[in-house]
Design a protein around this nucleic acid. Structure first.
Lengths: 329, 329
DNA sequence: TTGTATGCGTTATCAG
DNA sequence: CTGATAACGCATACAA
């Protein structure tokens, strides 16, 4: 490996001169040219580790994601990537494979790598998380779930549920099926559902059945094959777009027509909802922007600015083909 | 920041003793316990940079991907992630956003970061790539495209095209439409297509129309709205599953029925092909395994073992609902 | 403008 | 088993 010393020797100067050349630049034109040439010849690049060691700064940002093959995750990542690049951060992305142990492990690993801050796309936040994060004592930001004592950035999930509720009631529907996910996920499992249910309460004549599934398309699909023939709902609300796509698939398999037999909607605004037939009504979430904002926020945190503990991003209802008015038949 | 020195002082020993404790472990039980306690109290973690500086080893692997929101990319990443973890590598994932400049930039960046090796999910390989890689002179592996002088790992795209060709001919089809992508992509744009076309040549009575689109679903969708009413093909071959999904969407929009009006197939084996109606026949590629194998290969490269310049992974035809026999009507 | 000397946190060598 | 010391590659205060 060629070092600053080699360059210095070959150029017949002190290594501090080379260092100056590399940084400030207070060097005579002569030596500058000499060094210039030699660096090109040797293909020398400064050693980042030595630099970081000296500067006590790594310019690296850690990102922890729950899984790779998720479109929402990827959109968030896109936003993170773009803004990180803009602000001069190098990204270390670690995958925790929806596994609590690995999540904690990754926090550790990133802390050891001395990243300047960590952004974590959260599923559930446990005491272990909090403890570990406090212990690591570096700027930390949760995305997607809120944690009281740690900075977080979330979607307005309660609002989103409310939007769908109001929209569906407005269409005249009174009998609903809510296909949800477990409550360990505060944002999706609880807030989103609660927003919906609370809205329905305003309409006394409404009824809601509830089915719980997981984030997996396959599992949702299999459950749908069973519950679709049994439900009396005229409107099915799925907790995620993925689930909605799976339910739609099962429906078409079983010979139901959407929205003629029942209306269907999801949450998320995934691209997939636009490429199935019918296209699926959804509440679209600004995932990419969430990623962008999160980097800006952690950057502020890193630079010791004060930022609000919690930021919320709004979302917007996208009416497509899978929902229609309910008319007494 | 708490360092090995702090620990040493508090424990009343030399820092070399602490270092030994951290590594080999030749320390008396007494001092071991003392150090143990202090490290826990202070939450000390060794500084990776100092370590890397000393060890001249970073244990980091660079990965360059063309874009984040691609299911094939993500499956490859899953494989890479899993195996990297197994082999003890830390991943630095950089996104080049389908941009040549950024690709070259990323190679630079990763080289500067002193990663031990780079895996790049390639689109096209230019002389600039080759030059830069040779200059960086570190283990490098292309995935998805082959480069003569640099190690690469690819899918059998020509074979895949052939498989579809033989299958379609076997169903009795003679009039085809191939929806392809530009030839700057050697694997998908050329090999895949050529495998298909070469196979058709064996059947004199066959005819092929050709339409070129891009990897974008939206663009493919819009093109399909135009070409579907015009084509006489009874079998449409799409160069990727994404394109196939888009064409299917356009078809259902226009009132065509698949496979009654025409058969349709893609390449890739993306999950999406299973969640549309009808499900789409495809040649599935072992993306995840590709990721796994690639890490194993670069690990070999890093450890100076000799490995073949080129590795190929096979793929398998998955017949689903979107294709059926052609019968003279 | 240039060179010398020192320290960043760690590991390894070599006496003790 | 333990401690002093040098070295990794770089940046910088200070002196020349």
């Amino acid at each position: 490996m060629v070092t600053i010393n080699d360059i210095a020797k070959k150029a017949g100067v002190a290594k501090s001169t080379v260092s100056r050349y590399l940084n400030n630049g207070s060097v005579s034109t002569q030596t500058r040219e000499k060094i210039d040439k030699i660096i090109k010849e040797t293909g020398y690049t400064p050693n980042t580790f030595a630099r970081s060691l000296k500067a006590q700064k790594t310019n690296m940002l850690g990102v922890i994601i729950p899984r790779l093959n998720s479109s929402s995750t990827n959109e968030v990542l896109e936003g993170i990537d773009a803004t990180a690049r803009e602000l001069g951060y190098q990204l270390i992305i670690t995958n925790s494979d929806q596994n609590l142990e690995r999540e904690l492990e990754n926090i550790q690993t990133l802390a050891i790598q001395k990243v300047e801050g960590i952004i974590m796309l959260a599923r559930q936040i446990t005491k272990q998380h909090i403890d570990l994060i406090n212990q690591a004592s570096l700027p930390f930001l949760f995305i997607g779930q809120k944690a009281g004592t740690i900075h977080s950035m979330i979607h307005q999930d309660y609002e989103a549920g409310k939007q769908i509720g109001e929209y569906a009631l407005g269409l005249g529907h009174r009998h609903f099926l809510y296909v949800g996910v477990p409550e360990y996920d505060q944002a999706v499992g609880i807030d989103r559902k609660k927003g919906f249910l609370d809205t329905l309460k305003k309409e006394k004549s409404s009824e809601v059945e509830y089915i719980e599934t997981t984030f997996s398309r396959t599992i949702a699909y299999e459950k749908a094959l069973k519950f679709l023939p049994e439900t009396k709902a005229t409107y099915i609300v799925c907790a995620t777009d993925n689930i909605a796509v799976a339910v739609l698939k099962a429906a078409s398999e079983l010979g139901y027509r959407v929205p003629e037999d029942f209306s269907l909607s999801g949450f998320g605004g995934y691209e997939a909802t636009s490429y199935v037939t019918p296209t699926i009504t959804t509440v679209s979430y600004p995932y990419k922007r969430l990623g962008e904002e999160s980097v800006k926020k952690i950057d502020l945190l890193i630079n010791k600015k004060t930022v609000p503990m919690l930021s919320e991003l709004g979302n917007v209802l996208e009416v497509k083909e899978s929902t229609k008015e309910y008319k007494e038949s």
